[in-house]
Design a binder for these strands. Sequence first.
DNA 1: GTTAGCACTCATCCGCTTTGAGTGCTAATG
DNA 2: CATTAGCACTCAAAGCGGATGAGTGCTAAC
Lengths: 345, 345
Amino acid sequence: MGLNERSLSILEAIIEGHISSGEPIGSRTIAKCHKEKMSPATVRNVMADLEEQGYVTSPHTSAGRIPTDKGYRFYVDTMLQVRDLSPLQRRNIESHCNDVDLHVEAFLRRVGNVLSDMSCYTGVVLIPRFSASRFRHIEFVPLAHDRLLAIFVSETGTVQNKIIRATVGLPDADELQQAANYLNQSLHGMTIRQIRNIIAQKKREERVQYDRLLQQALDLSEMVFSSETEADVIIEGATNMLDYPDFADPVAMKRLFRAFEQKKLLIELLDMSQAESGVQIYIGGQTHFQDFQGCSLITARYTNGEETLGSIGVIGPSRMFYSQVVPVVDYTARLISRMLRHELE
Amino acid sequence: MGLNERSLSILEAIIEGHISSGEPIGSRTIAKCHKEKMSPATVRNVMADLEEQGYVTSPHTSAGRIPTDKGYRFYVDTMLQVRDLSPLQRRNIESHCNDVDLHVEAFLRRVGNVLSDMSCYTGVVLIPRFSASRFRHIEFVPLAHDRLLAIFVSETGTVQNKIIRATVGLPDADELQQAANYLNQSLHGMTIRQIRNIIAQKKREERVQYDRLLQQALDLSEMVFSSETEADVIIEGATNMLDYPDFADPVAMKRLFRAFEQKKLLIELLDMSQAESGVQIYIGGQTHFQDFQGCSLITARYTNGEETLGSIGVIGPSRMFYSQVVPVVDYTARLISRMLRHELE
DNA sequence: GTTAGCACTCATCCGCTTTGAGTGCTAATG
DNA sequence: CATTAGCACTCAAAGCGGATGAGTGCTAAC
């Protein structure tokens, strides 16, 4: 069952050959380019074994072998050796991320751009989750007699805004100001989750029933924080995918772009990856994500030094230069985590 | 030079035939389906004239004729008759736009969705221009010792935020509050352009030199309002374009999607269209917009009842159901203009 | 001015063969 | 027993050639 030295090196040769050429790899090619001398026939025997074990397959009888998803999985798990980034690459990433005048969303979009440019694939960035973010500031701006705009700024500096619609009369400007003041003082640094609990709890306290201002403040904040705003993901450089023959087939292309447009699947994947530390690699249809058939996703989470904020990643064809992309994702994630920590000092 | 009755009706038949079939139209087809009886040979003579005048062309010797850009231009300018929307369609548009709990950006994204869904092409929405928007509210939130977040809310309810970075020390929380108060009172309802002038003017006044708070307020607002934030456009349903054989050619497809990704061209076009009232139609490469070869853009501006805010549109292949899309764009623009007016009451 | 007739063009389709890369199997070899 | 040489076989891709048919331009007759 286990693969011996030679099988491994042949599997590696098939995968790396196919990654860089895009073509099926035949026995002759490998026999020629291999350090230990072997005849093509020998290689064929090994290949037959690898096929039996599900690591490679051939598109048709007289073609060479290409890796299966299982093959890629095995490759990235056991024999992938990542290169270090060159100083030039590092500087490149840094200089592009270093525009300090951007607010968080614009900054993260920039990060997506960098990932896409450095990898020549597609960069993705999961925006920090609303419910996990910490309270920094809230503000109410009246828009119309029955509508006001609530602006919420998180600890990290992400800005969310939300329309609040009155069923009965809305508080006047003064009252809004007082409510905001109260909330800004008492909720500072808490997560949305905590805030939800506190609000529910306070509303039950008897004395609150008689304090109109407090009541208003609680009502308003409840409207802001109760509903879950949906997670969002930034996708940059999707068109890079058009350059790879893997998506020349219009059906494959459509499927991929629809998946990008829907975002939902991608959010799920990135959300999953957030839970784990270090670089994660998801491979193609394997992860029961049909729409990303033929693709791989390399992700790493980013933090503010303490808490996980979100995750970033690169999507490319399964036939992807893992050894180059992994360090890009890894380094970028570390870099922005560091930047977001300094941001708060 | 001028086209007589019959030439016109044949040109119309060619264009409408090609719009619905996507194929070149031959003389026999037209001779058969035409009310006045004509032989194919007669039609051929007319077609030859039309070709000479540049309204149609044939992809190769033994194919029928397809419209040129000039042909489309002529068609939409002189003989396009738009249908009215069915009540069902109207209700459809209305119900989808009618989610009042959305803030402006989310609302406009929804509008883009509606345009794309109703037309089966791609919906685009130009976000209201920063410099033309009117001041409603400003707020400063300290982020770090050398950085603060300025949040600006326009009359229409769009929210912009911007990082302000201190070269020297920043004002403390109290001073920020006072600066915000001052600005909120004195700038209400002005356009950014006006505000820029006022700031420049006030800074020259001598008495200001000695009022530290006022000075601070002016400095801060200058930083917020001086630089032009770039215009932005929402693009929804780009993948719809993949369904049309016009973009089956990977080169054409890549060009189109790159144009979408860059946004710049699109912004220019929508910006231009903003100046004119009513529905505008831009056709393909004609408008010296190379990257939108083979595409047409139908736009209409939207207002808040008084001022133009931005414009919306639909991009599709030149071979597009103009008669159906024009009223969709028109109606949607009117609808959201009405909604944005009511929003402010 | 209109039309019928005819020669001509050219993309598309279909069937055919050739080519070559690559395989699996078997038998010989060290 | 693992390795290898040899050979028959498979199959996608490319090239070729004829048939098909949609459509044209031109000319001569109505």
